[in-house]
Amino acid sequence: MYRILLTRVLSRTDAETVHHLTIRLLRILALLPLVKQILHGWLAPRDEALRVQAFGVHFPSPFGLAAGFDKNAECVEPLAALGFGHVEVGTITAHAQPGNARPRLFRLIGDRAIINRMGFNNNGATAAAKRLRKPRSLPVVVGVNIGKTKVVPEDEAARDYVTSARTLAPLADYLVVNVSSPNTPGLRDLQAVELLRPLLTQVKAVAGRTPLLVKIAPDLADEDVDEVAQLAVELGLAGIIATNTTISRKNVSSTEQGGLSGRPLKERSLEVLRRLHAKVGDRLTLVSVGGVESVDDVWERLLAGATLVQGYTGLIYAGPLWPSRMNRQLSRRLRRHGYTSIAQVIGRVD
């Protein structure tokens, strides 16, 4: 049914318009406690074998929603009700900003991919904090992904991230420093270790007990991936999220500018994960994202060393029942292989 809706209706409508409509529908759902409870009881992961612990936080499932969908922390409960084991909101900047000019979101249906050049459009840290402070009727693990305000110069980037962290870290189960989006000029330069070290040091000091992770790009050279991994261990970060979108257009049908997500990213994302695991082992929590479409992808990422796995583009192409279906299939996969917990799977094959 959803596939028919996607191909006959949604694909003929502007992608960002559909996204905003989806957010509005989820916000309406957020106002209906009974409906939320029913959906959560039906779709949320219930298998205890799926539970996993990472950086001191308990997750009902290793499979969560990546940043980029809920930019303003508007619908974390409805998304949890659909079955995601965690919801990462953002990217949120210290100051509200409109993002880049439209059109800025493009579906590549034949490639099972999306290109975006959104540019961190969001309402700012203060507005997000107001929403995150509201009482919740459903259990949900919330990660908060923060980025640099576009108008802030590079030499003031650390201060900008610190502003966001000070506002949002107390309200997050974990905090992510995003220095890897290709859609904010100069942002990826901050992945250079000489710039990244002082930035992460300052944010970590403000984050306090909130676990801090850094999100990296798939376009980093292998040697740079190694350096970031070493830095993360040195600074005592909680983990690394690998990877963000790519600027590569290898084997895709579009040359639109922006970050590419979805199936074409799968191979490189897995390569980076395996490299990180070989470098840091279990000293850091590794979160894998990029080209995750099926339970086979989740399983492969767990075996390669990921404790948590995220998706986003898969939701667009598979529909709202996708996270619940992934959890059910993951439960069956565990049983079939004779495992009783996700922890037994993580890192078994590099």
Rank of each mutant, 00 (worst) to 15 (best):
A165N: 00
V152H: 13
D189T: 14
I92H: 01
V76P: 13
A129N: 01
A94K: 00
A169W: 00
P182H: 13
I146H: 01
P103A: 07
V142H: 02
M118H: 09
V162C: 03
L171I: 09
P103T: 10
P185C: 12
T126M: 07
R112T: 15
T126C: 02
L168P: 01
V87D: 07
G85I: 12
N116H: 10
A165P: 04
Y174M: 04
N123M: 11
T163Y: 01
F106Q: 11
E156P: 01
A192S: 09
A80N: 06
A94M: 00
P98Y: 04
L79D: 10
N122M: 00
A129S: 02
F120Y: 08
G90N: 01
N122Y: 00
K134P: 04
A165G: 03
L132V: 03
T149M: 06
P170T: 05
N72D: 11
A192L: 10
R107C: 14
A157Y: 05
N123P: 11
V87T: 08
L132T: 06
A94V: 00
N100K: 11
R102I: 13
S180H: 10
A192G: 05
I114V: 13
A113C: 14
L171G: 08
L171T: 03
L190N: 09
V144Q: 01
G147H: 14
A157V: 05
P139D: 11
P103F: 06
V152P: 12
T126A: 05
T167W: 00
R136H: 03
L82D: 02
S137W: 06
V152L: 11
G83A: 07
R166V: 14
S181T: 10
Y161N: 00
A81L: 10
L132C: 04
K130S: 06
Q191D: 09
S164H: 01
T149I: 10
L175N: 04
